[in-house]
Design a protein around this nucleic acid. Sequence first.
DNA 1: TTGTACGCGTTATCAC
DNA 2: GTGATAACGCGTACAA
Lengths: 343, 343
Amino acid sequence: MKFEAVTIKDIARALGLSTSTVSRALRDSYEISEDTKKLVREYAQEHNYRPNPIALSLKEKRSRSIGVIVCEIANSFFSQIINGIESIAYDKGYNVIISQSHESFERELLDLNYLASRSIDGLLISVSTETSDFEHLKSLHNKGLPIVFFDRIVHDITTHKVAVDNFKGGYDATTHLIKNGFKSIANISIAQHSSITQDRLGGYKQALEDNNMPVNDSLIKFCKHGGLAYEELENALDELFSLENKPEAIFTASDKITTGCLRYFKSHNIRVPEDIALVGFSNSDLADLLQPSLTVVKQPAFEMGQVATELLLQLIEAKRPDKQFESKVLPTELIIRDSSVKR
Amino acid sequence: MKFEAVTIKDIARALGLSTSTVSRALRDSYEISEDTKKLVREYAQEHNYRPNPIALSLKEKRSRSIGVIVCEIANSFFSQIINGIESIAYDKGYNVIISQSHESFERELLDLNYLASRSIDGLLISVSTETSDFEHLKSLHNKGLPIVFFDRIVHDITTHKVAVDNFKGGYDATTHLIKNGFKSIANISIAQHSSITQDRLGGYKQALEDNNMPVNDSLIKFCKHGGLAYEELENALDELFSLENKPEAIFTASDKITTGCLRYFKSHNIRVPEDIALVGFSNSDLADLLQPSLTVVKQPAFEMGQVATELLLQLIEAKRPDKQFESKVLPTELIIRDSSVKR
DNA sequence: TTGTACGCGTTATCAC
DNA sequence: GTGATAACGCGTACAA
């Protein structure tokens, strides 16, 4: 803080002691007499002494802050994750510094640079949809920066990872559509190379195969930029709806894309589920209140944030570099509502 | 970062110079010869030297980080605000440390304590709905911590403040309902003492009066805890619907309360707007996709975050303590959709 | 039981 | 034009 805080030196001067005595008294060292301790403690209490975290950081070569990079804060899924991150970090006395990549690789590089320059002790990251080159992360990781990946994983880098069972999420959603009688089922995901796309798409394909249905590539669309810009999704949907074999249902693999579809349908007077059914990954609080209420694959976002943070802090506070890394897989939940059920 | 970063000392040793020379060379001091500068710059570049922000903080007695306290991150309105805050802070090289009060006074005290102990240079806060005692903030403010209030303002403390024209927002929403033929109009807000409640309720009352309609206190409800718990809102609605003179419309004064009403109506099979009309403050991205699409009073949240941050940084970086404080008032926008219009 | 001196990384001041 | 030194706040090895 800008205003003058009480320092150990101030206390020492006021009490006619040396700074080391005061320091030790405050840390309840066995070397200090009870009388002195009491004196110091009372003075410190009264003047609201707080150790200066910056001085401590400099000394200990750790900042007690962790960096977080997500594509967007203003997105239910990620804000719930951040909530989970904060809940753990706060308890352990760590700062959380949040940066947004806005799904841009370039911006992710800037963020990373910024965070590195802020001396973070560790990094939690869900890589941007554009990111397919991981050198920037590898380089930092090799220099010793503890990293934990969550949501969108980087397989190339060996460290802790936390995600949901994306394959099963995709499989369950697609199976649900099939069981409800929908024949041609489209899939819209973020960039093709993303780990979540790979897994969710894999589940989608497996479900089709298990039900002896063909996998039709013209029904599979990717939004390279994560559908952050509506136009991107609009193009994909325009293409799907101009197909001879129009889809009867869509499985969408991200929050933004899911709600974007609803918006497209509304503006094109396409009825859900009569004209087309919809199941999508979404953590929106409002899914039950939408028109129609939305069948979703929901992720335990809060827990994901918590688990990732616990792993990161464990990594940071480990005495000897750990060589055993975990890849935690959390369950998804299929919540069935009106958007996917024929009336 | 945990891993060893290159320091000025390292460069000095490697180049056979003194640390002061290196420091000056890097800062392009006129005292240093071009040759030396070039030598130092190249070495620094090559070894990716970054000044240690912690050491700088210690020296400059400023942390280049600002604290933010909001009730919740996972709320469109506040996540948009945080977006605005980050956009400015990032540009100016400041960290943003976010804490959530979860609408609890006690938690707000803890947050404040935590942030103060992290040596923030300034504070942006929208006080919790429970907060009616401002001594904790006054005390920090008096000690010299720059504070800017946004959204939920504290009038008792003289500093910069940023909010929307809440009175007009309430007035416009209520007037809109009146013009659409609704007679008995209820109002549900967060805690009565909150600045936004005062202003929005004021606008509501004024609109009624301007249209020669009575203000009926039994139609005015407060959610002391901000409606974070659904039960609180449920009770308020139960009471409203058991009135002899049931409301024909509701004006809700916060995001959580607005969508909570929709949820209540849905579970009670109350049709909107046939059985009851609804207009509420909300910044949800999904308001247009809800059932029914929601008439909202929308706030320029992103801008609010930006303006508040600009004012705070101005305060922090001011040479001499400013005595001229601004209270910025941003416009609200009434977006009319189906929830408030008789069919 | 208490005090002195040093180092963390940086810059400002003073000296040469 | 360059170097040595002190200072920011803290904890601790070493000295007394």
